[in-house]
């Protein structure tokens, strides 16, 4: 059996586990329904006469400008974090439960090596997040088309916004991969979720201190304008490439850690 056939076997097994996973089902629903609903809803609220005081000030960025562009801008901002969190939760479950429940021990001595199984887990997670991101953006575009058609506004700006949302969502999903490594070394699902929460908090601190553009976990969100126009302008291709580089580095670390796994 070739390495490709081994990876195919492991991929099909991990894909089946994902389809049966409650974590993945809940996260999928949140990504493909809540993100579009939130994107369109936050813009509607910002432009509603009911938005006054602190709410109006908070949503000021969404209150003006091209309607469809703003829908997709909000989608990009939400997805950049939602894809990271959804991916992190799923990877905490996918890797952590094998080690917590003891099934990781049963993955020794198989024809498909452990490193290949770990690689398949990561690829399945990435593929799932990518599909969710594409669907979430597609649903947002559709919802935006319906809203703009009803109001007679232009829809042209939606496509550029959709590209931004896709890139931000995919980058967010890729940034979840280090949590597969964390789940492996901590052997704990909850410990990994704690690490994920800590990383989100750390990102906030780094952004507050003004160092966000070179911090991979902050760059995608800042690029979408979550930190304002000036912060978005400070994020360029090198910063996004650095964020994108996290996924392959984490992938290599996870595979290597699973190859050397012992005492399970």
């Amino acid at each position: 059996m070739t390495a490709v056939a081994n990876l195919g076997a492991a991929f099909s097994v991990e894909a089946l586990k994902l389809r049966r996973s409650v974590v993945a089902r809940v996260a999928t629903l949140l990504l493909v329904l809540l993100v579009p609903l939130g994107s369109v809803g936050v813009v509607a609220l910002a432009r509603s006469p009911r938005a006054v005081g602190a709410t109006a000030a908070k949503l000021a960025d969404y209150a003006t400008g091209d309607l469809a562009t703003t829908h997709l801008l909000a989608c990009a901002q939400i997805l950049s974090v939602a894809a990271l969190v959804a991916g992190g939760f799923f990877l905490a479950w996918s890797f952590g439960r094998e080690l917590e429940s003891g099934t990781a021990g049963a993955l020794f001595g198989l024809a498909v090596p452990r490193g290949t199984i770990a690689l398949a887990k990561c690829l399945v997670a990435l593929a799932w997040i990518a599909v969710c991101v594409v669907v979430a953006v597609a649903v947002t575009v559709t919802a935006s088309a319906v809203v703009t058609a009803g109001s007679g506004a232009s829809f042209v700006g939606a496509w550029a916004g959709a590209r931004t949302a896709l890139v931000a969502g995919l980058l967010g999903g890729g940034l979840a991969l280090p949590f597969a490594w964390l789940a492996t070394v901590t052997r704990s699902q909850l410990g990994t979720v704690g690490g994920l929460v800590g990383m989100v908090a750390l990102t906030q601190i780094v952004v507050l201190l003004g160092g966000g553009s070179w911090f991979p976990y902050a760059a995608p969100s800042l690029w979408t304008g979550m930190g304002g126009a000036a912060a978005a302008a400070a994020v360029g291709l090198p910063h996004l490439l650095l964020a994108a580089a996290v996924a392959p580095v984490a992938l290599a670390a996870v595979v290597q850690t699973w190859r050397r796994l012992t005492d399970v």
Partner: peptide
């Protein structure tokens, strides 16, 4: 083949699915 402590059984999968997964990981084709 081995069963030490926890077997290669996933609670979310059916009996048949567990066995098919085990077969794939033991090198059997789909």
């Amino acid at each position: 083949g081995h069963v030490v402590d926890t077997p290669l059984v996933y609670p979310d999968l059916t009996v048949t699915e567990n066995l098919r997964c085990a077969a794939r990981l033991h090198g059997r084709s789909r």
